[in-house]
């Protein structure tokens, strides 16, 4: 999957979403889920992805339980949960097998999205670990000053404001510094920007795109 062009994987994401909406039978949706799981195994993704998928299945089971409790229809509950799993799994495939730089290059070069918007995607992902570390540091610092989240959910939420406020302020400061540093590195200075990585489509991409179009057309014909 890593050799597939990012734009093909983006198309796969869109097509799988369409298929998940269009398909109404449990066996078909199960087959779609199994196919996606096979793709993930072939892509040799890390264990953290499987942990995420396990959480997804648990969440889907809870959702199905709630649906069953409301409608008393086990089939409807199973289909709803399967649709959600099928739609979400494809994002795991996209994000686990595509480098963010390649994805933003594809968005700019092939989807003609302005680079500033595509850059937001990579920058947001880049700073997630930093903010988690920052949050931990603030919690430790506040704990030294007596912060201890106790009580009911509401009380915990309000006490957590002691962490959220400095975190937001730090995030704003960081974004200011980042904007300055981007200016200092010539960001957005030229209309034409180059990309180091090659994201052009290969033969397997065209084959995959064609297959997806044909399968979607078949589904549409079958339904209407």
């Amino acid at each position: 999957m890593q050799k597939i062009a990012p734009i093909t994987k983006l198309a796969l994401t869109i097509f799988v979403t369409i298929w998940s909406i269009v398909l109404q039978s449990l066996p078909a949706l199960t087959a779609l889920i199994v196919c996606q799981l096979i793709l993930l195994v072939i892509a040799k993704v890390g264990s953290s992805i499987y942990k995420g998928i396990a959480s997804l299945f648990v969440f889907a089971a809870i959702l199905a339980g709630m649906q069953y409790a409301i409608n008393n229809d086990i089939m409807l509950a199973a289909i709803t949960a399967s649709k959600m799993i099928a739609m979400t799994l494809v994002f795991f495939i996209l994000l686990a097998t595509t480098r963010m730089q390649d994805l933003s290059a594809a968005l700019v070069l092939q989807c003609h999205i302005p680079y500033e918007y595509a850059f937001m995607l990579t920058a947001a992902l880049r700073f997630i670990p930093d903010f988690l570390a920052e949050s931990k540091a603030i919690q430790e610092a506040q704990a030294c000053r007596g912060y201890s989240p106790q009580g009911n959910v509401l009380q915990r939420f309000f006490s957590y404001m002691a962490v959220i406020k400095p975190l937001v302020l730090k995030a704003v400061t960081k974004s200011e510094t980042m904007a300055l540093s981007l200016e200092l590195r010539g960001f957005g200075s030229r209309k034409t920007r180059s990309f180091k990585n090659n994201v052009t489509l290969a033969l397997q991409d065209y084959a995959m795109l064609l297959s997806m179009i044909l399968f979607t057309s078949y589904l549409v014909i079958q339904i209407y």
Binding site: R99, Q101, T122, R126, F195
Partner: peptide
């Protein structure tokens, strides 16, 4: 601002 070392150095050059 990027994910890897190589991408970080390339970023300034890509801007140019």
């Amino acid at each position: 601002v990027t994910m890897t070392v190589e991408e970080e150095v390339a970023f300034s050059l890509e801007n140019m």
